[in-house]
């Protein structure tokens, strides 16, 4: 470091337009924040891109833009979410995630301390997941044109031969499994939304699921579909799969794991937990004869200890999701229209 350059003062100050100008301020931001925390040989090379050597197999690529308010929430922040979200998307294809790229849109005025906290969180999450952030980009937009920070991550992984996961492979008779309690992430976020605040112990479930996926595929290589029920929750994701596979699903409400406090928060706000987002859960569909074995493997993994078989794929020309209610009736679990809004009636 040049003796005339003071340390990058992250505890004070905020992002301004010079941080995106391509000049010295930007170079220092990249060096003193991004490289410092995310450091690896690819980033250190300082090139426009990264040259990666991949193990044999088919390459999986997935990309996801992350926008969230508030940026920091119980159980996580936008930083770890941006890592977990994309790692999980790669994992849902059956692949081992290897590298990430990250694009940042910073809003003028974002406190540098917040940015550092977010990048540290990304660093921890990517280290834990065993994926390197190989290349990235930073832009700054004027105040009012962003929501603090937006992060787009792209993940690269490799899927072994013999693994064929796709949303169109669900067949009548197959079983539907979930890896744990539903709705935790969405409710944790809502509890901090302005004008809705309530006090709760509920934390976001944001986590990387690729190790759970690896264990599941090792036990049952013939899993047909894996998907993480993020936005729109279980309901939206199952409707997508049903459309792709042109089959219906019948859920058993009694079997669906939902924390009592998540259920209570949903009652209070008039929301349906089946439509609430998750960031550390997956849905698996497999042949009926594999279901129990898969369930055992999931339950013996820390990220799947509350796993459950929640339903069955059925023939249905309307490709509808239906549910046998705890009460003893039946209902349709439809696509959601827009975002679920808290309601009073």
């Amino acid at each position: 470091m040049n003796a005339f350059e003071p340390d990058f003062a992250t505890s004070a100050g905020a992002v301004d337009m010079t941080h995106g100008s391509g000049g010295r301020a930007m170079a220092r931001l990249i060096r003193d924040l991004f490289h410092k925390h995310l450091g690896n040989p690819h980033l250190a090379a300082g090139n426009d891109g990264a040259v990666l050597t991949l193990p044999p197999g088919r390459v999986v690529v997935s990309t996801d833009g992350h926008v969230i308010s508030p940026l920091f929430f119980p159980g996580g922040d936008i930083g770890c979410l941006a890592v977990h979200g994309t790692v999980n998307d790669v994992a849902m294809m059956g692949a081992k995630p290897l590298y990430l790229t990250a694009g940042f849109i910073l809003e003028e005025g974002l406190p540098l301390a917040d940015l550092e906290r977010i990048i540290r969180s990304m660093a921890v999450a990517s280290r834990e997941a065993g994926v390197a952030i190989a290349t990235g980009d930073t832009k700054v937009v004027e105040k009012g044109k962003g929501d603090g920070v937006f992060i787009t991550t792209t993940g690269v992984g490799v899927v072994a031969d013999g693994i064929e996961l796709s949303g169109d492979r669900a067949r009548p008779g197959d079983k539907v499994l979930v890896s744990g309690t539903l709705g935790d992430h969405g409710v944790a976020i809502l509890s901090k939304r302005q004008n809705l605040e309530f006090e709760t112990e509920i934390c976001s479930d944001t986590t990387a699921l690729h190790e759970l996926v690896a264990a599941m595929l090792a036990a049952v290589p013939g899993i047909r579909v894996l998907r993480d029920p993020t936005r729109g929750g279980l309901a939206a994701t199952l409707n997508e799969i049903a459309q792709q596979s042109q089959a219906g699903v019948i859920l058993d409400e009694r079997a669906i794991p939902i924390r009592p406090d998540v259920a209570a928060a949903c009652e209070l706000l008039g929301l349906d937990p089946l439509y609430v987002a998750n960031e550390g859960k997956l849905i698996a569909i497999c042949a009926a004869q594999d279901a129990e074995r898969l369930l055992d493997v999931m339950r013996s993994h820390p990220h799947g200890k509350n796993a459950a078989i929640v339903g069955e794929v059925v023939e249905d020309k309307h490709a509808m999701i239906q549910m046998r209610t705890k009460f003893g009736g039946a209902r349709v679990v439809d696509w959601i229209a827009g975002e679920q809004l808290p309601r009073i009636c």
């Binding site: 509808m320 239906q322 209902r331 349709v332 439809d334 309601r343 009636c345």
Partner: peptide, 20 residues
């Protein structure tokens, strides 16, 4: 629109509904 509206209820919970 309203989750209490008869149309939304029919659409969301009742449309094409078949028994198990």
């Amino acid at each position: 629109v309203s989750s209490e509206g008869a149309c939304a209820a029919y659409w969301t919970y009742g449309r094409f509904r078949t028994n198990a």
